[in-house]
């Protein structure tokens, strides 16, 4: 039973992990991108659109192959997220618009856009149904190792996910090493801490901000794709994606801007967010209706506790990047 719970928790956690890792990289450059929920929505709908076009227009069941069924949604997702990243970077870094306002606008834009496109695609199938499913791509995305089912609880807990789940963990580990150990990572952190200093040391602040934000958005966008393909099994619904995005933003704070901590952090958040569903599904205890939203609040409460704890501890290393949220202009006095 715990294995099942863990499995479900991880299914939610992977989306969070993508979103969180991407946002950490973005925030390390000093860009506070509150558009993560929007980016994840766009990543999800872009991937969905790619899969939809491939399945319904560009191929027939006979000609479809697994490679294109995976690559086309993936590329669509990355491109969609990249565009969001470019919009954010252009507005905040080049035009120096307020980061919070820009981010929130992107969230609204992304959520709305994905709703609109999702509804539009349903209409195109002429099936008259309320939803549309991209069963082919999601089948490949959900494919696990053939012997995973034979390994009992171990298989269920660790091997029962599609390849994107492992990609998420690898990206998080690489991001942690990148930030801590590499010269480029050091430069990136300097940009987020003190852009004037980074600039005076010959670091191209604008370039770093653009790259970190765009790459961060592309990683975050994959969270949307994973949700569509694996969690929702190829059925589009945008309702749950935006809250996941906000949870990813909270997770960044929870993990004190460390991608390696994001891996266990995401699983904890994933577990907490499905706890109410799991309890009522298993009838372990009969849960009053009001308790559900209360339980869903727990990740945010935990985040607030972490925030309080960190401010009390006053450890410099656990604080947000110092220049987070501030635009940089070299000739500003």
């Amino acid at each position: 039973m715990f294995a099942t719970f863990f499995h479900r928790a991880v299914l939610t956690a992977i989306s969070l992990l993508f979103g969180c890792t991407g946002e950490i990289i973005t925030e390390k450059s000093g860009n506070l991108n509150l558009g993560v929920p929007g980016v994840m929505c766009v990543g999800g709908i872009s991937g969905f659109t790619g899969a939809f076009l491939y399945e319904f227009f560009w191929s027939t069941p006979e000609t479809a192959n697994w490679f294109l069924a995976i690559m086309i949604p993936l590329i669509f997702c990355l491109l969609g997220s990249l565009i969001m990243g470019l919009i954010y970077s252009f507005l905040t870094t080049t035009l120096r618009a307020n980061q919070n306002v820009t981010g929130l606008a992107l969230t609204i834009l992304g959520a709305g856009l994905s709703d609109f496109l999702g509804g539009y695609l349903v209409k195109q199938t002429n099936s008259g149904g309320a939803f549309v499913s991209i069963s082919l791509s999601s089948k490949y995305y959900m494919a696990t190792l053939p012997f995973a089912n034979d390994l009992g609880w171990f298989g269920e807990m660790f091997l029962s996910y599609g390849f994107l789940a492992y990609v998420a963990i690898i990206i998080a580990v690489i991001a942690a090493i990148f930030l801590k150990r590499t010269r480029t990572g050091l430069n990136l952190r300097a940009v987020g801490e003190n852009p004037a200093t980074a600039d005076a040391n010959g670091i191209n602040v604008i370039k770093y901000k653009y790259f970190a934000t765009c790459i961060g958005c592309m990683i975050s966008g994959l969270g949307g794709l994973f949700y569509v393909m694996n969690k929702a099994s190829g059925v589009w619904s945008s309702d749950n994606l935006e809250p996941l995005g906000w949870l990813a933003v909270a997770l960044v704070i929870f993990t004190v801007w460390k991608p390696n901590l994001a891996i266990p952090g995401a699983i904890i958040f994933g577990g907490l967010s499905i706890l109410s569903y799991h309890i009522s599904a298993n009838n372990a205890i009969s849960l009053p209706l009001e308790a559900k939203p209360l339980l869903e609040m727990t990740p945010y409460i935990v985040t607030v506790v972490v925030l309080i704890f960190n401010s009390l501890r006053k450890k410099r290393e656990s604080q947000p990047p110092e220049a987070l949220g501030l635009a940089y202009f070299r000739e500003d006095r």
């Binding site: 050091l186 952190r189 801490e193 003190n194 004037a196 200093t197 980074a198 040391n201 410099r316 110092e322």
Partner: peptide, 8 residues
Amino acid sequence: HFKLVDLF
């Protein structure tokens, strides 16, 4: 005003 990153 020194151009140093405090955290480093």
